[in-house]
Design a binder for these strands. Structure first.
Length: 503
RNA sequence: GGGUCUGUAGCUCAAUCCGGUAGAGCAGCGGACUUUUAAUCCGUUGGUUGUGGGUUCGAUUCCCACCGGACCCA
């Protein structure tokens, strides 16, 4: 790519037509007319706002440290006093005041400084001092415009309030809203904590296909795309599960992956079409082992991100201190409804109870699906403290191993926190014959119109035929964990670029 | 898919209930000022009230449709 210097701005955006942007364009042109480059290629700094604050604590007013620093960031909130200027330089680490004096800079440079607007990117060099009022500052003796902001930033005091713009133009949100920066950093800290927990336990981080021919590993509608050279419909993955278990077949004892899943479903406060999942698989472990690990990993994340294992969420405490409560799905439903249901309760009875609860029952549902729906409708959103709901019906768990003593259920748990599913895990089904039967049941449901039913994956069954050792698997919804750790009710607050309708 | 709310200056918000051609603060622009911290003071510019229709002498306001957004329900 070659790029000619743009002497005349190509103003298709109409910047010259609005007074607030026109004046910035004029200053840009004034810069150029003085032979200065408003968009230089590079700038070398040797300090950050935070590093300067850290290395100069508690200085007296009027102090001169003799230390020279070079910093770079956005210039905000310039205050003008005759032959003095104060401004705030904001970089990734925080803010440091710039003290700009005509006496230090000289007339010519001081005049050029006034061509810089709030929001411009600036590099500055000078001595670390404190002002008469004691504010740690850089007494600027040299500065460079690093990039012009041709558009004015949102209000310096109120920030950017409009939610739609906060999501569509996250760069503005991050620039002016401290809260947005804190949330972004908390998300990064969460992922770092999770990654460290798994690495400490000897798990290997792997990458598996995002483009899949069989969208398996979960019950959900996929996004469809097309591979031209192969003339083949492909799907963005709804889960990495089946590939990760293939790696266990291949002898990689402990693996995990943190990355995006895609589900072609509605968008609301807890669902983004692409979301981040952590999945892990451990050979020779069962769901009890996974439960014990899960509560440790989640509690560690809470501590790493918030400094406490008790987190305030939407005004109520959530205590992540292990061990978490364990509760079977059937007991949970019976406890809530005051009934004595079982997996051999008649379909008529279960349908009647579900109907009474305004659940739209489908004729294909067996007792397991009905009880799972009763659970979702009556119990799930009431579980606030971290709770392992265990022993899910076989019918809704096509990839889970049957319970060792109760043939109606599988060795599966979901971790429910604040009424939402935070994790899903099971002792993996590793009997290829049973896996094939489960897939065939799913295929029947699919043929009956259930487009979220699991497709048959022949190669996955073939892999099981080579032998999947006993394995415990886990999926953690990273976005939802971040929501709880940052006290946000909407997933859009914890995803940097959430999906909205295009402008 | 259904319901409720919402869109006004670059930003944050008034005026809308009860129709009479939109105000403020900040930002911007001009001026004063060598120690500010949302600086202060004086002056000043800035609006197709989301879009399109309808009712009306007159619509930001009432009605309809559409385009976005928020929340609740399914």
């Amino acid at each position: 790519m070659s790029e000619e210097p743009t002497e005349e701005l190509d103003d298709r955006a109409g910047l010259a037509d609005h007074p607030l942007t026109a004046v910035r364009l004029e200053k840009l042109n004034e810069f150029r007319s003085r032979g200065l480059d408003p968009y230089p290629h590079t700038f070398h700094r040797d300090a950050s706002a935070a590093s300067i604050h850290e290395s100069h604590p508690g200085l007296e007013p009027g102090a001169e440290t003799g230390e020279m620093v070079t910093v770079a960031g956005r210039l905000l909130n310039v205050r003008s006093f005759g032959k003095l200027r104060f401004g705030v330089l904001q970089d990734h680490s925080g803010q440091i005041q710039l003290f700009v004096s005509k006496a230090v800079l000289g007339d010519a440079a001081f005049e050029i400084f006034d061509l810089i607007d709030n929001g411009d990117w600036v590099g500055a060099h000078g001595e670390v001092i404190t002002t008469k009022k004691g504010e740690l500052s850089i007494r600027v003796d040299r500065f460079d415009l690093l990039a012009k902001s041709l558009r004015p930033l949102p209000d310096k005091w109120h920030g950017l309030q409009d939610q739609e713009r906060r999501y569509r133009q996250r760069y503005l949100d991050l620039t002016v809203n401290e809260e947005a920066r804190a949330t972004a950093l908390a998300r990064i800290a969460t992922v770092r904590s999770l990654r460290r927990s798994f690495e400490e336990r000897g798990f290997l981080e792997v990458e598996t296909p995002m483009l899949q021919v069989k969208p398996g590993g979960a019950l959900a509608k996929p996004f469809v795309t097309h591979h031209k050279a192969l003339d083949l419909d492909m799907y963005l993955r709804i889960a990495p599960e089946l590939y990760l278990k293939r790696l266990i077949v291949g002898g990689m004892d402990k693996v995990f992956e943190i990355n995006r899943n895609f589900r072609n479903e509605g968008i609301d406060t807890t669902h983004n079409p692409e979301f981040t999942m952590l999945e892990s698989y451990e050979a020779f472990a069962d769901y009890e082992d996974v439960m014990a690990m899960t509560e440790q990993v989640v509690a560690a994340a809470a501590n790493d991100v918030t400094g406490s294992s008790v987190v305030m969420y939407q005004g109520q405490p959530v205590d992540f201190t292990p061990p978490f409560r364990r509760l079977s799905m059937l007991d949970a439903v019976n406890e809530q409804l005051g009934l004595g249901l079982a997996y051999d309760t008649s379909l008529d009875e279960l349908r009647r109870i579900a109907g009474d609860l305004q659940i739209k029952v489908e004729s294909s549902w067996g007792p397991g699906k009905l009880i799972a729906m009763l659970f979702e409708a009556t119990v799930e959103d009431r579980l606030w403290a971290p709770t392992f709901v265990i022993d899910y019906p076989v019918e809704v768990s096509p990839l889970s191993k049957r319970h060792r003593t109760d043939p109606d259920v599988t060795e599966r748990f979901e971790l429910i926190v604040a009424g939402r599913e935070l994790a899903n895990a099971f002792t993996e089904l590793n009997d290829p014959a049973e896996q094939r039967r489960r897939f065939e049941l799913q295929a029947a449901a699919r043929a009956a119109g259930d487009d979220e039913a699991h497709p048959i994956d022949e190669d996955y069954v073939r892999a099981l035929e080579y032998g999947l050792p006993p394995t415990g698997g886990l999926g953690i919804g990273v976005d939802r964990l971040v929501m709880i750790l940052t006290d946000h009710a909407s997933i859009r607050e914890v995803v940097l670029f959430p999906h909205l309708r295009p402008e």
